[in-house]
Design a protein around this nucleic acid. Structure first.
Lengths: 198, 198, 198, 198
DNA sequence: GATGAATGAGTCTTCATTCAT
DNA sequence: TATGAATGAAGACTCATTCAT
């Protein structure tokens, strides 16, 4: 069991990670200073270093947390008792929702090899491929159960991922559509990639 | 008319811009040093400053050139005497081809507001919206001429853009598919977004 | 009389000083962190500050203790009822023994002026010159009583000190010679400086 | 052949090294800032980094230069057509002279393992052992040719080195003795270690 | 007494930028 | 035009020191 102190520390760490994700997502890793991250939490640089070894470590743990959450989310949805199409819709919705809410850019996501190496890179890539695999499996289930057409799963999955991750680029909060409407609309069109015949 | 000297200068400038696009596209703007860009051309840092005011200017002109080329390309394709569907296929092909060939994942493209301001930003945003508009127009033509279904153009366009720009993330040169096969396959699936009924 | 508490505190202080001497001797003052010193005693940084004002204070008291011990040691030997030559041999032996056992480097010893100032420096320099003076007196006794040749005392003393302090540099624990053999051999040769005619 | 420019660069590098040796020798490696070194040459930090990779590199090259010079010096003296005793005297004189003139008390010399590692350490240790070997050879020659008594060469050499390196500790410029007189006196006494019988 | 946290001053280091030649 | 050098501002990181609990 975690002591009270350990819990507090864990909580603080998480706070910092969230702050880091948000600032780095917004400004980019290189453009973000440790001071930026600390300032957002009314801390000083020094404190952040008390919890994290260095900037790289902070980036790694931030991105890892982000991926783990996504993975947890997709896993939970897959366990629900609904059909593959409904699952995929839910996955897309929460994915888009997350991106839009956190405004989390994904330069790291674009070229993980430029930000990580060694075992860090391995773990990151593993998490990513597990997410991809989960998505693939939902698609395959859908195909097998007759919900989706027989598509090239890898291409379909990447079209879906690309389209979703791009949202941050063009969605404006003040836009005509609400987050929910948007998710629904995008999901609707993406579904066509899977559902319709030529 | 351009004097010989002016031509030479223009040529050199373009060389530098190409080098810059490639290195920045690869490593990211902040991670790229002036030295990196110069070294790739067997120049020294100092020389680059003869042609460009500063790093920011280099980035601006690089990205502007990239956008102008894309715009020129899409414009040319639109002038061809083929149906909207064929046009869109060609546009997608050359877009993907460009991304894959140059391996250019421009972070700049994700958040232009973080890299430019004032009139630079305006010009960049203008070029981007002209490209978007061109794409939209092709889609609309397609709808009007009965090639495509009556879709939400903005969403459709962004799904297409997102899916295409994401390619850099997952396409491996040594993969099973050639560049051409890949473009074709992606275009094929994306077309479903536009072509099919629910 | 010291209360129990005061005794406990004094003991703890001494423990810390010993730890400090050893770590600083090994890694050098600047390269040694308060954490290093504390960690060696399974304490935390904070606790050390309960016993010592600051790092400088710790260094001062450490070095002072070291000098006082040496002084006590030389004084005791001088009180023994043996001839000057035997005294000098004993002094050398214990000096070398101390250095080899504690592996205590002496950057502080090299340039005290760089580590101390004001009254601290005065006290340190006083202790050092008392040690030097003691050594000198043994040499002078030896000369007067006909054991040693009539040498320049200051130079002789410094040759002896230099040679002894250098031992840490080249003595390897796993070497051919034991600590005792080594001390004896060095002392033997150093004695020649004093004993022989030209 | 070296170009004019290359010569200039080499000269500048050497200037910096000399400055570094002097400041580091005086204040110690950790207490010396890059700014200190630069300031002494009326340069800025940045310039120093133009010539040396980092502080560690500067330390390494400084100490290496110092050792190489000593080695060159001892080698030249050994080539002279004088007897071993005269050689040793000359070697001691210039060694002491160097230390006193440059006031270089290199802590680095005390514990090279704490300052260098890998190939740097190897090269440094190699230079040092070559110097030691040279000294040893002169001593051995002296023994063989009947100038010195049959001593333990390793111990004798280390007594000599220790005594000489200690000089920086106690020699005061304003003292009674000139540098030359001092060297001579020390050399005179050290010679006794080698020359006299028990 | 002890310690987990927090702090900020001090350093190293990088790199865009300038400039004399 | 080209470039070797020099510069300084910015940012990562360390660590002595403080303090509330």
């Amino acid at each position: 069991m975690m002591s009270l102190r350990a819990k507090k520390t864990a909580k603080k760490k998480e706070e910092i990670l969230k702050s880091a994700i948000s600032v780095i997502g917004e400004k980019g890793y290189h453009a973000t200073t440790m001071e930026d991250i600390a300032a957002k939490l009314l801390m000083t640089k020094g404190s952040v270093y008390y919890y994290f070894k260095d900037k790289q470590d902070l980036l790694y743990q931030s991105y890892k947390m982000l991926l783990e959450r996504s993975l947890k989310n997709i896993t939970e949805i897959r366990e629900e008792d609904i059909d593959p199409e409904a699952k995929l819709l839910k996955i897309m919705s929460s994915h888009i929702d997350y991106i839009v809410t956190e405004r989390s850019g994904f330069e790291v996501g674009m070229k993980p090899e430029h930000f990580f190496e060694g075992s860090q890179l391995e773990i990151i890539m593993d998490l990513r491929s597990r997410y991809a695999k989960s998505l693939d499996e939902v698609i395959i289930e859908g195909i097998n159960e007759g919900y989706f057409h027989n598509v090239d799963v890898k291409i379909a999955r990447n079209i879906i991922l690309g389209a979703m991750n791009w949202v941050i680029q063009w969605y404006k909060t003040e836009g005509e559509k609400s987050k929910e409407e948007l998710s629904e609309a995008i999901a609707h069109y993406l579904m066509k990639v899977l559902k319709n015949n030529d």
